[in-house]
Design a protein around this nucleic acid. Structure first.
Lengths: 334, 334
DNA sequence: CCTTGTTGACGTAACGTTAATTCAAAATAG
DNA sequence: CTATTTTGAATTAACGTTACGTCAACAAGG
């Protein structure tokens, strides 16, 4: 690996000039002819700057970490995309971490944060950040931005409450009266339930209690079973988590309930998979790509010592994607 | 951030001793009492070694990259797990990259490889490595290991041919005679088709041509439609890609074909989702976790300059997970 | 008592950058 | 023609580690 010293020797100039050519520094000036001579030498020797040496000198690694709790959840696809793109615009690489590596005792975050491996960290907080972890995080020098959701840390969210409201209002407009909310535990689910409540209230309907069965396919199946045991069975449900929707569909099949004829289903978070299930699932698309971009920008605000522009992303708004799993109620039952 | 110099000052020893305590170097010896004094100083100052400085000095970053082509394909879950675990055992962090960042022109790999950001790279090759990329990669100094599949680079694979054979033989044993293989393009699909052929031949059946429609849900749907247009419709299909299986199920529903009564389906690669579809999909589980572990070990062989122990992973073998999407053919049609 | 070996440490030169400082030569001003 | 400014560059001190070489003090052996 050729170094700046080699280039300097080959071009017959000093180290400083090479560095100036590489960085476009204005402090050290040079003739255009010298510049091209250096450039040629770089080309010939195949010079590549050593990122490690740069990092040491500048105390900045041009790398940020993103920690997610279940990396293969497809909702993270667009989020990752947004983060990668925005990071690239800042000249940074993204170190993707799974929450499994993140238990309080683990060395992973400590290495990242204290050992100067990354310039900052994005964490998707849901179900991840207990008090232990939070205090450990707070004691580190590098900035941390929480994606959905933190109380006393800089954070940035998508509008989960609104998503719950949109899903519910859609079902209300389809003349459903008995709508239940199948959710999980945690803040996000709570927010979406709040939106559900709001839409129910606005329609003069009484919200059913929050059926908190957790996340994922099994949770969806459990939720549906519980919902169906109620005195008056619901004609529609709002499913908190998109992977839970898969479980809802499966449980419905197992219970002999046809969707959407006997039960309408709307999911929150839209992923490609929903298009390919049968029935194709009507879902609320969340601006996850924008969340990723905004997260990186806010993190770089923090890194630069600027006040962070956190908050709830309202542009674009959550958007309903209508497919086949929800239909108008024709037979009114009450 | 406290440095070794601060610790040395606090403990009243030289830099060399602190470094020796940190690394357990045997060259520089010290009294046990000195060691504990240094340790205490480290504790008090909250000393954390600076990874960047270490990297520069040692010319090794303790970081490896893994590049995948579609990061949210759930088949990568166990692969990632294996890679993370094995990497952790080597004291390394994993930098996860998506292939989108990898087009020939992109700076991503160049930065990683030439700028000394990582010690080595694992790449899942399928559909990714055209000749351009390969020659670009070869010109770099850090070792590269290809997961499924390369010709002139160190590589390591799971037994795709065997998976095709296992899936097909299972259907043959269920008395199916008209079995088609819905595949994609590329080496992996080809290998699995070879296994299909082999099982068909062994049963004295004539293999159908390889229906190569690509990857993902849409490909599965397309494949099924094509298969059903044949003169004699198949009673069973082997689906190359697990996400394609979702598409097959959807297309079957759309075409009014019930699975498994009218059509048996076996997928290659098992993911959790398959359990939760209806019907639950019978699939061949591939040892992806082991592929990840073995990949890291082979990469570290390369990094250490040892001959790499690549090849096909045969332990464990691909394993059939029987669920509901395939059933015995009762009405023999020919 | 001198020699040799061992213990316990210290000094320092890298690793490849960046940027502050310095400085000679050329250009311009008075 | 001298004084001053500008141009074009060179020297060098960090950044935080690691590991090589050195060395004093003490112990053991002859």
């Amino acid at each position: 690996m050729a170094t700046q010293r080699d280039v300097a020797r080959a071009a017959g100039v000093s180290l400083a000039v090479v560095s100036a050519v590489v960085n476009g520094t204005s402090h050290t000036r040079m003739k255009e002819s010298t510049r091209t001579r250096v450039l040629q030498a770089m080309q010939q020797l195949g010079y590549q700057p050593n990122q490690t040496a740069r990092s040491l000198r500048l105390n900045q690694t041009d790398m940020i970490a993103m920690i997610l709790n279940k990396l293969d959840n497809p909702v993270y696809g667009p989020l990752r995309h947004g983060v990668y793109e925005a990071a690239a615009e800042h000249g940074a690489t993204v170190l993707l971490g799974d929450a499994e590596t993140m238990r309080s005792g683990s060395q992973f975050l400590t290495r990242l944060l204290s050992q100067g491996t990354v310039d900052g960290i994005l964490i998707r907080g849901e179900g991840l950040l207990d008090d232990d972890v939070m205090t450990e995080l707070s004691s580190h020098p590098k900035p941390i931005l929480i994606l959905e959701h933190a109380l006393d840390h800089p954070w940035i969210d998508v509008d989960d409450r609104r998503a719950g409201e949109i899903a519910t209002r859609f079902l209300v407009n389809l003349r459903h009266r008995h709508i239940v909310f199948v959710g999980g535990s945690g803040y996000l689910s709570q927010q979406r339930y709040l939106g559900y409540q709001q839409a129910m209230d606005a329609a003069g309907l009484t919200p059913a209690p929050h059926l908190a069965t957790g996340f994922g396919e099994q949770a969806g199946a459990d939720g549906l079973r519980q919902a169906m045991q109620a005195a008056t069975a619901p004609t529609a449900i709002v499913v908190n988590n998109i992977m839970s929707a898969v479980g809802v569909l499966a449980a419905a099949r197992d219970l002999g309930i046809t969707i959407p004829d006997q039960l309408s289903v709307v999911g929150i978070h839209d992923v490609d998979l929903m298009r390919h299930l049968r029935p194709a699932v009507t879902a609320v698309r969340m601006p996850m790509y924008q969340l990723g971009r905004a997260g990186v920008e806010a993190l770089y605000d923090l890194i630069a010592g600027r006040p962070s522009a956190g908050g709830v992303i309202t542009d674009p708004e959550p958007e309903l994607v209508v497919r086949d799993s929800a239909t108008a109620l024709t037979r009114i039952r009450d």
